[in-house]
Design a binder for these strands. Sequence first.
RNA 1: GGCCCCGUCGUCUAGCGGUUAGGAUCCAUGGUUUUCAUCCAUGUUACAGGAGUUCGAUUCUCCUCGGGGUCACCA
Length: 465
Amino acid sequence: MVVTRFAPSPTGYLHIGGLRTALFSYLWAKKNNGKFVLRIEDTDKARNSEEATQAILQAFEWLGLKHDGEIEYQSKRDDIYAKYIQQLLDEDKAYKCYMSRQELDALREEQMANKQRTKYDGRYRDFDGVPPEGVEPVIRIKAPLNGEIIVRDGVKGDISFQAEDILDDFVIARADGSPTYNFVVAIDDALMGINEVIRGDDHLSNTPKQIVVYDALGFEIPKFYHVPMIHNSEGKKLSKRDGATDVMEYKNMGYTPAALLNFLVRLGWSHGDQEIFSMDEMTQLFNPKDINKSASIYNTEKLDWLSSHYIKNTSNDILAEILTEYNLVLTSHDKKEILLDALKERAKTLAELAEMAKEILATPTSYDEKAAKKAFKGDAITVLNTFGAKLSASENPHLPAEYHHLMEDTINEMEIGFGKIGQPLRIALLGKMGGPGLDVIMSVIGKTEAMLRIANAITANTNND
RNA sequence: GGCCCCGUCGUCUAGCGGUUAGGAUCCAUGGUUUUCAUCCAUGUUACAGGAGUUCGAUUCUCCUCGGGGUCACCA
């Protein structure tokens, strides 16, 4: 069985990069009828917060990503880690190091001055003398001094590291006894049965250390997939400083989960020329072996396109429902179908759609000066009066087509072009240019409201010449 | 700086020794449209550079250049 995981540290909101690796892990588990474990890596008590954990959960919920089983918290697993630390100590695979911070810093400075790579010198590796007073020891693992460590990566292939280049006896437990990241990750992944680790490229250089832990404890090494970074427009690793990296921001901006997920799955992964993937298709087709090797630059142009695609293809009932989250209540509006049919063709986001709907539904309180001036040149007032009279005399027009006939009657009778009525009428109804068909607008707002808006416009623009 | 990774249109990508180097997005132009969008059509733009290997390299090898990641008692 394939077991994958997403293992964020709760130091802030869920960001785009994290979401993508979570999505990849999720898809791969689902495709194989496996499990997707969510593990909160909260060993750093100083930087973690409960709010951050909640924010991550909230984002998962919005996007419909469900983890399997209970959420695992590393902070609740101290006993387990302590047991393995003791085991390594007993087996002489780890040891206490009494080097003080000051000594360590001094060593580092000296190494830097000599242009050597900074590494612990192993001075307590085989120490059996009397420990110095007043120093709480850290526990270091005995890492291989030389030889090759090969990371078999499903994305990049086999990557070879030389132990002397990258390893030293790294700390697995701090002076206060708390275990460190590379140690707990390996233990948790092993104990939780994680056999396919899909994570960011920035963890690649940690992997040899984790392999040291796996080996020391006799655990089986999982399959690794290191997903290339997402870069900002500067070409640097996407960070929280880059703006709009909080996943929930995308909800506020009016993107749907389907659009966001579709956008993200295509960042660093592809399936031929296909661009549109439903959640089902993603789970069917995703395979981490098809992940790209190179980093991609974060750019939301395509997200807008996907977003409008999904809005166009969402039913009006569902749209009306989601739109309530953008302060637009249409669910029981009798012209909801007509309105949404017209609007969903032209909205890139739900927020935009809601905004356009509100503009149509509200009586204009002002008129775009330039557009009004242009529209009310000539005999626009007469045209509007003529049309208004026809509208007034009509019997409850309902559908857009009926309003359209009224407009046609007017232009035929007055022997004018469509533009002559279109422009002033549009100003009257919306206060500005743009937007859906006038017949649609009038159908949605109804005869009475349409007449009111026409009258208002005539009053406001009479002395405009 | 050491170690590691990467390098196809502006962007996301297809390609896995022989292609007019494909798609998508963006942009531009035209058509449709009372407006704006949608939609349709057309167009501009890419194999980082240099050596090899080969009958033939975008594809394989090496070098250069460029970019990135990482080097904690942080995760």
